[in-house]
Design a protein around this nucleic acid. Structure first.
Lengths: 237, 237
DNA sequence: CCAAGCCGTATTTTCGAAAATCATATCCTT
DNA sequence: AAGGATATGATTTTCGAAAATACGGCTTGG
């Protein structure tokens, strides 16, 4: 009876109705995206078992799921490692994102209703609010990352295709890892707040061509930034 | 010493260097695509364990991988089932395929070299050869399915993006399942051989606009066929 | 000195039993 | 008799031990 849903003493909280494997998958994904586990780093079972407090099999399931998402690299019979990064991969992910996101923003603008507009506006509002706390290093703030993800998610959420949304989400995660990779070396962030604001306005005022152009620029210039400031990490691999 | 690599007496062959889990994933994928396991059907461990001769954990890993591919549906704490089919899902998969495949065929035509042309021509040749064996029911011939997959794969293989190729392959598999779903009810196949031939010629003669148009028609008319002849299976779910 | 094969160790992969969770039928209470 | 709690059986989920496989150093023969 003293057991509420969040006896978050230490680790072993686990949301109701969810499997431990799904929980570990989620936590591992976050760590890899945040580059707490470096690209190319071997993922040894002993170490992970210690860190997450679960058994071999459960870990294996999580690693298999992340392999399908492109965040982990399975080397059969020789274990897993964090998916390596490369300039080529960055280019591919960026291109794929542009292709898909551009299409989805068009569909969303065409189909979005009141709820969609409200979601776009409110997620941007929260993002800006959080941004004010530390305008210099937003990427270091986990809450900013969540809010940022949710804003971009909201923008395309009305596109009408769960299939394409799932693919988009996967590519977004892979791109976010590259952003984190370069975050420590980037001198100062460019005017992201302004860009997000402009995208929101183009979307809400139902101007698909402008929105598409802004989104494409947003994605490509972020990738260019990564390629510049993480160059030393991309060429060695 | 009598043990060569293919002592394919019964089941337990396993390619060198591969894990059992990867093998089971592959076999399960094929069965689901061929609708040997019906859409929506519960995937009980006891049954699968019997059928594939592996343990709980190995099965779980395979099911997790297929869940990420959209062929299996995980219901946390309540097991797995074959991903259900629906008209909506068919439309989404078709749309996504057109979006991506159209882009990839353009890139492949622009970048393809001699090896690419040879691959396209030879995979089509093999497909036609196999097709002659049973022109009425090609889908029932596993070899035709493989050859068909390889021809479409070859067409886009020179696109230069492993990322997009992986996404394309996933969508192709999901679409192929729908084709098998309606195969038993389709009166007679339309002129697929001719369509493939035309696509090949447009690609090799480096006519991207024509190739794109043919591919889009090819994909959409296949989907329309499915929607028509598997209607009773799509509306009930 | 080098190459090739071999052995011991480190690590992954697989298994089946045990724990956790869900679904169903049963039994109270009102 | 209806509604709700509870026990029971079926099924999934998790675990750690055991088997399989890869890695690295060592020896041996040329």
């Amino acid at each position: 009876m003293t057991e509420t849903m969040s006896d978050s003493a230490i680790r072993p909280r686990k949301e109701f109705g969810k499997t431990i494997a799904a929980d570990v998958t989620h936590r591992l994904r976050e760590e890899i995206i945040a580059c707490g586990l470096a690209p190319g780093e071997p993922l040894r079972f002993d170490v992970l078992r210690e860190r997450f407090g679960v058994s071999f099999t459960t870990l294996r399931e999580a690693l298999t799921a992340l392999t399908a998402e492109g965040l982990v690299d399975a080397q059969e019979q020789r274990g897993f490692r964090v998916a390596p990064v490369s300039r080529q991969d960055l280019v591919e992910v960026t291109d794929a994102r542009v292709l898909i996101e551009v299409e989805l923003i068009r569909r969303a603008i065409e189909r979005g209703n009141d709820d969609w507009e409200i979601a776009v506006i409110s997620t941007l509002h929260r993002l800006k609010r959080i941004e004010q706390r530390d305008p210099e290093h937003p990427l270091r703030d986990p809450e900013w990352n969540i809010a940022h993800r949710q804003f971009h998610q909201a923008l395309v959420s009305a596109c009408g295709s769960a299939t394409l949304l799932a693919i988009r989400a996967e590519l977004f995660d892979r791109a976010e890892r590259y952003r984190h990779l370069s975050a420590n070396f980037r001198p100062r962030p460019r005017d992201k707040a302004g860009e997000h604001q402009a995208i929101m306005q183009a979307a809400i005022s139902r101007n698909p061509d402008l929105a598409v152009q802004l989104i494409e620029t947003h994605i490509r210039s972020t990738a260019d930034n990564v390629a510049t400031y993480a160059a030393h990490l991309l060429d060695t691999e």
